[in-house]
């Protein structure tokens, strides 16, 4: 009897490793596809740039953009700007996680907290953070504080909302089973609720970062002085430095891509994908 079950299991094991293989191949193929699409988009841009529809000063050729990018990277200015932007986004994002995660958990566990915060989340989440920049500038001045607070505002609600949904979605059977095995409140929280809610928490982190990244560039355009990728774009406009603007855009896209794919992608791979929980939540 066991012979047969173990045999079926062994074949099942083989299929799963086979699935992992195709998974790998699939991700490589999607990378290729992304590269091809990017190249096509670049060619379209280049065609318009060379057609002379816009003055070359307004729409520089890609070679010039690349050259500007390399120069700015080499002399360190682009890196310095990126560091400033990253500092603001990470500061605001971490603050948002520190506030949004516990609040989301409290909302899911206590009806009173939920009753207080849920309407607030529903009302404030749809307001674009960008719309708050002028107001925040008046309150907090130009500089890091305003940009960080804008990032914080943008990132907190998705973090809170997803954590709340995640904790609510924890399978009650896990709590029962853990309770039957003698888990106290503390163990239930750390060993069942947090890992059980992890698909949603990771989605929350991902959405929060995406929103934070969009918010920081926007906020820097208006509320930053001298430093930051958003400021670079805004400042370059004054001097018609379209190549600088486009170079900054490339960096913004690149950093966003790295976080999305590398940081959150690998976090997902090492946790919920490994546990077979990634189907539960798709951001």
């Amino acid at each position: 009897m066991t012979e047969t079950t173990i045999n079926t299991a062994a074949t099942a094991g083989k299929t799963t490793s086979g699935a992992a293989m195709t998974e790998q191949r699939k991700s490589r193929r999607s990378l290729w596809r992304a590269a091809v699409v990017l190249i096509i988009a670049a060619c379209c841009y280049e065609a318009v740039a060379r057609s002379g529809y816009f003055a070359p000063a307004l729409m520089p050729k890609l070679s010039l953009v690349a050259q500007t990018l390399v120069t700015m990277l080499a002399d360190g200015t682009m890196i310095e700007h990126s560091v400033f932007t990253l500092y603001r986004v990470m500061f605001g994002f971490l603050l948002a996680v520190l506030v949004g995660l516990p609040l989301g958990i409290l909302m899911a566990r206590f009806a009173a907290v939920e009753g207080f915060f849920l309407p607030l989340v529903s009302a404030l989440m749809p307001i674009p953070s960008f719309a708050l920049v002028p107001l925040f500038m008046l309150w907090f001045g130009i500089g890091n504080l305003t940009t960080i607070l804008i990032v914080f505002y943008a990132a907190t609600f998705p973090m809170m909302f997803n954590t709340w949904s995640g904790v609510r979605s924890v399978n009650p059977l896990w709590l029962r089973a853990a309770g039957a095995m003698g888990a106290d409140e503390n163990a239930l929280f750390w060993k069942v609720i947090i890992p059980g809610a992890s698909p949603f928490i990771i989605t929350g982190l991902r959405q929060a970062f995406l929103r934070a990244w969009i918010a920081v560039v926007g906020a820097e355009m208006i509320a930053a002085s001298d430093w930051g990728l958003g400021w670079v774009i805004f400042d370059a406009k004054e001097f018609l430095n379209t190549d600088v603007m486009l170079a900054a855009l490339v960096v913004i896209g690149g950093i966003g891509f790295v976080f999305e794919k590398m940081v959150f992608g690998s976090l997902e791979k090492s946790t919920i994908q490994r546990w077979g929980m990634s189907r539960v939540a798709k951001g």
Binding site: L173, W174, A180, K191, W275, G276
Partner: peptide, 28 residues
């Protein structure tokens, strides 16, 4: 008392077979 439910989902997906079986011992 030890309890076994009907639903396969009773196991903790984030723990290996060994991790699942150790849970009660960990609590002890």
């Amino acid at each position: 008392r030890g309890v076994v439910f009907q639903d396969f989902a009773q196991l903790f997906p984030w723990r290996t077979a060994l991790g699942n079986v150790s849970f009660g011992l960990e609590m002890k």
